[in-house]
Amino acid sequence: MINHFVKGAIALALTAGLATAEEYPSETITLIVPYSPGGNGDITSRFIADQASDIMGVNFVVENRAGGGAFIGINSCANADPDGYTVCFISTSPITVRPHVIEAPYDPMTDLTYIGQFMLSKQPVIVRNDGKFDSIDDVIAYAKENPGQLRWSAAVPRGGPHLATEAMFRAEGAQTTFLPSKGGAVELANLLSGTIDLAVISDYGPALDNGEIKILAETSPGRNPQAPDAPTLSELDYPLELASFFALAAPAGLPDDVIATWDDTMKQITDSEEFATLMERIKAEGAFLNSADFTARVRADFEAMGEATAKFGLAN
């Protein structure tokens, strides 16, 4: 009996000694999700953790640290040790958008290492399919003829899709009324009931198949596969277009070998069949970008957003 304990203790001491010398990763990795359980961000993060755990051979703990529009969770990640054992899930709004319009506790350009992107979602401009508007030109013409009478909304007030569309209206000098709301489902109901004339939401679900709504344009780069004829905002020469990404980040100063391990892991995960099934099921588009490419995208979007904010006064 005692013999077993001694053996166990020796084994433990040995592995502990090995662990420090061993390559990354050798300990449990914490994945912080800055949102409450249940959303797509949480579901995909748990999936990534599950798969990465198989590939890397270490345990993952997923921690939901919600609040402050994701600022709290991301901030606790930014303040952790950059050893690769604390990573976090990030999405567009708290990284490239909201820090320009509201004071964030971290600087997205200096306080985080961007590990990689795994998903993009489409954020289309939609209207009722009642013949009132058939194109963005129709919308702009109506808004100019009837100042302040075009009512519209977006799922997240002051999120990327809202501000990209607002920048479009301001570039045209069109006066509109933005009605803030809580969530895409309520906005869809408001659109169908005529409370608003235009919505920028991603979860329009079955309404498109049922022929009740129509997509006029896409506020993120690349056309919407469900409406291949609708142009993107940049194709229409409007100033702002923001990628709506799901990605992972870590504290600033993450070592290169850790980044390389993650690049490799994320590639494997996003190439897998299980990942494709998950994307299909949540109606999203899997889109892998490694650390270097994703960092470049974040920087470009952050700057574009900063310029647009200053030029069109989007912060007010």
Binding site: G38, A185, A189, G205, P206, A207, N210
Partner: peptide, 14 residues
């Protein structure tokens, strides 16, 4: 209409 009234309905929708 395919509009989920709450999270429970949203889960059933998905």
């Amino acid at each position: 209409f395919g509009i989920p009234g709450d999270i429970a309905a949203a889960l059933i929708l998905s």
